[in-house]
Design a protein around this nucleic acid. Structure first.
Lengths: 155, 155
DNA sequence: ACTTAATCGTTGACTTTATCAAGAGTTTAC
DNA sequence: GTAAACTCTTGATAAAGTCAACGATTAAGT
């Protein structure tokens, strides 16, 4: 009997002391995997995934992102933005508008329905965040948010 | 309030004030993307990627992980572990040993060469971590590490 | 003004990664 | 002792990442 069937926490605890478990890149990868799986589950009933949610969120930000800007901010290839916007557009949630200053670019804007869905989706992702950080105090959450932002957007 | 699109000011800065940029799940996903790309580049000369490095690291931990445990700790499907171990094994870096207590399981152990390569790889990932957290003080780094661990391994 | 180069969205080909089901061998449970 | 559960493995399929090239448009150079 090497491992008791049904108890999955034993395995994790066994490797908490490993050098890998202390590496921030590993912890980040693990948190991303846990977080996106949870977010996808919460967004599923709305017909969204983390990717399409991110695009919808920026489309609803009032900042009029172009597809190129979406790719850069989300760290995706521009060709990956196309089917994401296609799907949201086909559902009437966002629209492609010609940029008057540069007709090569297409500005992504959200429709009223897109905004309504985004508000629901935002509640879902906030719930996921609460679950993820259930063990953290309010000030710890804000500390974590600030430190993550300084790494995600180095000056 | 739509900001003027197409302006050549830094694209990232334009969206720092977006609601998405304040979401921890988004920041985590972005950090993971930046970090794994950087780590893969640093590990490339050693013939490793973040995935194979993670397996090698645990194999060299002295904790004798089984493939099932590797999958659980790394949040991968067990079938994904197979080709990872295959590749490391074919290079003589790790070995599959029958678990004497349970002959279904295979314990992954590292060879001398595996350990030597791991030590070099560990230097590379530490360098990546230094680059990622260049803007953080030493105490901020440890705070971040602890907060990430509490999310990655909820009790 | 006119040619050349660069940019944006898009398509398509291709590789890598993720997800799932099923099978052979082994261990556990009843 | 038989049935159920577990581990590794294979294979099929879907999703995601990477890269080159094209038409339309803009910018740069002369």
């Amino acid at each position: 009997m090497a491992t008791k069937p049904g108890t999955t926490t034993n395995t994790i605890d066994r490797f908490l002391a490993s050098e890998l478990a202390g590496e921030i890149e590993f912890l980040t990868a693990r948190n991303r995997s846990l977080g996106s799986a949870r977010a996808n589950k919460l967004l599923g009933p709305l017909g969204l995934k983390v990717r399409s949610y991110s695009v919808l969120s920026l489309a609803c930000s009032g900042m009029a992102p172009t597809q190129r800007e979406l790719a850069e901010f989300l760290l995706l290839d521009p060709s990956q933005i196309v089917p994401l916007v296609d799907e949201l557009e086909s559902r009437g949630l966002v629209g492609r508008a010609a940029d008057p200053n540069d007709r090569r670019s297409k500005v992504i804007t959200c429709t009223n329905e897109g905004m309504q869905l985004y508000k629901k989706a935002r509640v879902a992702t906030a719930e996921g965040e609460d679950i993820a950080m259930a063990n953290l105090s309010k000030s710890e959450k804000e500390t974590l948010r600030e430190l993550l932002a300084r790494i995600a957007f180095p000056q």
